[in-house]
């Protein structure tokens, strides 16, 4: 479904992504781990068109998308959330999600309003729908990020640290939302530091370090890998 080959992004001498390869299959929940500064968010920025790659190829459902604009990729079926939420602060929560349904999914106002209502219900924001997004708490802003991404009707959903700071109960709710999304046949790539959440949802784990993947496979195998334990979980000397 998503195919990255030799993907590089350099800011001057800084190689944020360094010839990285990744394949994501339909129906997977791929968890992405990596220390701070490993290039995880940058990877999402390159996949969604916020940054153009310096080198390498991005294929989505077989088509090369490396030169497309972010809105074209969204409409093609790639949704994402931002680690630092990017709400439309002056609009109501409902209008935030409506915008995604109208522009991202290309729905008419009437259908988009229904989609927005359902998505707010799913993400637990229904009671907030008439509030201005600028008035939301951080937790609700993260929900709104998810709601906006889902309302675009993506087939591939990129989640950037949406479980950080959640209580166990809230985390449970989030996991059940992700289960619903999987039932809708949405493929998920999830960057997350909250390991227990990631372990219970991910069908596969990949570890990013220094701009490339150093491990990739079944969650247990990857977490048991000595290199991974060394760079990510902290070396025990």
């Amino acid at each position: 479904m998503l195919d990255l080959t030799g993907l590089s992004l350099h800011f001057g001498a800084l190689r944020v992504l360094d010839g990285l390869d990744l394949k994501v299959e339909r129906g997977e929940v791929l968890g992405v781990l990596g220390p701070n500064g490993a290039g995880k968010t940058t990877l999402f920025n390159v996949i969604t068109g916020v940054h153009r790659p310096t080198a390498g190829e991005i294929r989505f459902e077989g088509r090369v998308i490396g030169r497309q604009r972010s809105w074209t990729r969204c409409r093609a079926g790639i949704g994402r959330t931002f680690q630092v939420p990017k709400p439309f602060t002056g609009m109501t929560v409902f209008d935030n999600v409506l915008t995604a349904a109208v522009h991202g999914a290309g729905l008419s106002f009437r259908t988009a309003a229904r989609r927005a209502g359902e998505t707010l219900e799913l993400t637990g924001l229904a009671s907030r729908s008439e509030l201005e997004a600028g008035a939301l708490s951080l937790l609700d802003l993260k929900r709104l990020e998810l709601a906006k991404a889902v309302a675009c009707g993506p087939r591939l959903l990129l989640l950037d640290e949406i479980a950080g700071g959640l209580t166990d109960r809230e985390c449970g709710t989030l996991l059940s939302i992700l289960t619903t999304l999987r039932e809708r046949e949405i493929t998920i790539v999830w960057i997350e530091h909250v390991l227990h959440a990631l372990k219970s949802a991910a069908t596969r784990l990949a570890v990013l370090h220094g701009g490339r993947f150093i491990a990739d496979g079944a969650p247990e195998t990857v977490l048991a890998d000595p290199t991974v334990q060394d760079v990510y979980l902290g070396a025990v000397d």
């Binding site: 969604t48 068109g49 916020v50 604009r69 972010s70 809105w71 969204c74 409409r75 949704g79 994402r80 931002f82 990017k86 709400p87 439309f88 602060t89 002056g90 609009m91 209008d95 935030n96 915008t99 995604a100 522009h103 991202g104 999914a105 290309g106 997004a133 906006k148 991404a149 309302a151 675009c152």
Partner: peptide, 14 residues
């Protein structure tokens, strides 16, 4: 209106 509030955020929702 979305663009006014957050350009990058508007771009990724289409």
């Amino acid at each position: 209106t979305a663009m006014r509030d957050n350009e990058e955020g508007a771009g990724v929702v289409g």
